[in-house]
Amino acid sequence: MKENQMTSKNQHTMVNKLILSCIFFIFLLYLILRANSPSFKLKNISISSSTHSTCNKIPPSLAKSLLHYATTNRTPQQQMDEISVTYRVLEKKSPCNLLVFGLGFDSLMWRSFNHNGRTVFIEENQHWIDKITKEVPSLEAYHQTYDTRLDQASELLSIGKREDSCKFVGDPRNSKCPLALTNLPKEVYENEWDLIMIDAPTGAGYDLPGRMKVIYTAGLLARNRENGETDVFVHDCKRYAEDKFSRNFLCEGYIREEVRYLRHFTIPSYRSGSIKSFCP
Rank of each mutant, 00 (worst) to 15 (best):
T13R: 15
C22D: 12
L108Q: 02
S277E: 08
A63W: 10
P201A: 13
D243Q: 13
Q11H: 14
T119P: 03
Q5K: 11
N10E: 11
Y30E: 14
E229D: 15
K41H: 14
I275Y: 00
T75K: 02
P137A: 13
L181N: 03
R74P: 06
S8I: 12
S269P: 08
T230W: 02
P268K: 06
A204K: 14
E257C: 06
F27A: 14
F24N: 02
M6G: 04
P76R: 09
L33Y: 11
E3I: 07
L157Q: 06
L179R: 04
Y270A: 11
A218Y: 02
C251E: 03
T86D: 02
R223P: 01
E192P: 06
V259K: 08
L195M: 13
K41S: 12
F27D: 08
R239T: 05
G203K: 00
T145F: 13
T230I: 14
V188I: 07
K17I: 12
I83F: 03
K176L: 12
N4M: 11
G117R: 04
A218W: 00
S272G: 11
I32T: 07
C251T: 00
V100D: 01
V214H: 00
A204T: 13
G117A: 09
S49P: 10
Q152W: 10
Y206T: 15
I47P: 05
H127A: 14
S272H: 12
L195K: 03
N116I: 14
P172R: 00
V259F: 05
S48M: 12
D194N: 07
R271K: 13
L20C: 10
L31Y: 03
W110N: 03
P280I: 03
M1A: 13
K186Q: 10
T86C: 07
R162Y: 04
A180T: 00
L139W: 06
E163D: 12
I129Q: 07
S53A: 11
L20P: 14
F27W: 14
T7V: 10
R247A: 11
N73D: 09
I198C: 02
L179D: 01
K9M: 10
M80Y: 13
I19Q: 06
C55E: 10
S138H: 09
P137T: 14
R263C: 02
R34H: 11
L31F: 07
N174K: 09
A200E: 02
L33H: 09
V234Y: 01
N248I: 03
K9T: 10
W110Y: 10
H68M: 14
N227V: 15
P201T: 11
Y216V: 05
